[in-house]
Amino acid sequence: MTSNASGRRNLTFISRRSPYGSGYAKACLDMVLSAAVFDQNVTLVFMDEGVLQLLPNQQAGNIHAKDLSAALAALPLYDVDKVYAEQDSLTRRGLLPDQLAIEVMLCHADKIAEIIRQSDVVFTL
């Protein structure tokens, strides 16, 4: 497979881990932002424990960490506007869509499967 004429590819990032307990959530975001800076067509999907990154009121400074949800709020500045959260993952964890730290598009597994099929590269972290 090759890039299209503009050198843009569909890069999808599936973020599955909760913040702070491991560095994977931040690592995933770093990859998302890099891809965006390089003008790629980026899609970000939060599923499983990854939806916990969307909890508001994170006092990360208390554990000498940088607030990941605040970093997520910068996604629109990088033109990353395809941001999804799996509804089932939210529901299982008692998260309500209107109480999340950032705006996301809710989706089900079918949509994630479709996103994967339309991607050139998928990174799952």
Binding site: M1, I14, I116, R117, D120, V121, V122, T124
Partner: peptide, 8 residues
């Protein structure tokens, strides 16, 4: 397979 998704 066109894509690969690595669950780890």
């Amino acid at each position: 397979h066109r894509q690969s998704v690595h669950w780890f």
